[in-house]
Design a protein around this nucleic acid. Structure first.
Lengths: 122, 122
DNA sequence: GGAATAGTTAAGCATGGACTTGAGTATTGC
DNA sequence: GCAATACTCAAGTCCATGCTTAACTATTCC
């Protein structure tokens, strides 16, 4: 089973538009904190907080050489969320398949079919 | 290009743990508002607000028959987010591939390779 | 028709998180 | 050494959002 709080921290990181923009910028190549802060109409400190959030949940990685910190995408960072989505899409689609199948076979009312499916929750 | 605010509304919906739990419950089959509210230690009205949020961004669908509203998963609801993730993973991985390739071919320092890649931003 | 049920809406409170300010530290260039 | 650069940290403000309460509507059962 997947780590619940990992998904939580990734979603909390991605929900902020500025952080998504930072990710887009970094997906085109590494950048320093100054370079990342420059295009945004906000303070250096604010961007730094976003970077810390992104790094804390494993979406980016950074390395400080001298006084310069360079940030880059953590390649597998989005994998947990991608997996979470996959896990939630498959049951939903299987459910639909079974529903359609049973309806076609028996011609029962949808409510009766739903009652049947309740019993098979795994 | 993908609709920016669609991703935004989906992420805002998913970031709330209660709403993710509601989705998990619904992925096992349809449920009424009362049924969905029951397991949560919060008021009916609060759960209703979550349901409205989920429906507004296309993650669930609901239908009212008589005085009972039945909710179910909207099968394609997570697709825009899944696509967004895919689009962001591929460039990141391609970048890594190119970096490795160039390093292997030329034996240059990583910083020089990064400078080259900056110029080819599309 | 009237009570019970199922849901809906609006207003207000409380908390979390984004952002700013301002002060501080480490590194580099002269 | 000292000024400039690049970043770091802490405290405080402000606003969005989750939750509650309370009043309301529509439907069903007797």
């Amino acid at each position: 089973m997947l780590n619940y709080s990992e998904i939580d921290s990734i979603l909390r990181a991605l929900v902020e538009p500025t952080r998504r923009q930072i990710l887009e910028r970094l997906s085109r190549g590494p950048a320093t904190v100054s370079q990342l802060a420059e295009p945004f109409g906000m303070t250096f400190a604010a961007v730094l907080q976003h970077l810390q959030t992104l790094e804390a949940c494993g979406l980016i990685r950074s390395e400080k050489i001298g006084r310069v910190r360079t940030c880059r995408i953590e390649p597998g960072g989005l994998a947990p969320l991608a997996d979470w989505i996959t896990e939630r899409r498959i049951p939903a689609e299987r459910h639909l398949d079974r529903l359609g199948q049973i309806l076609a076979e028996t011609g029962q009312s949808p409510s009766k079919v739903q009652d049947q499916e309740k019993d098979e929750q795994t």
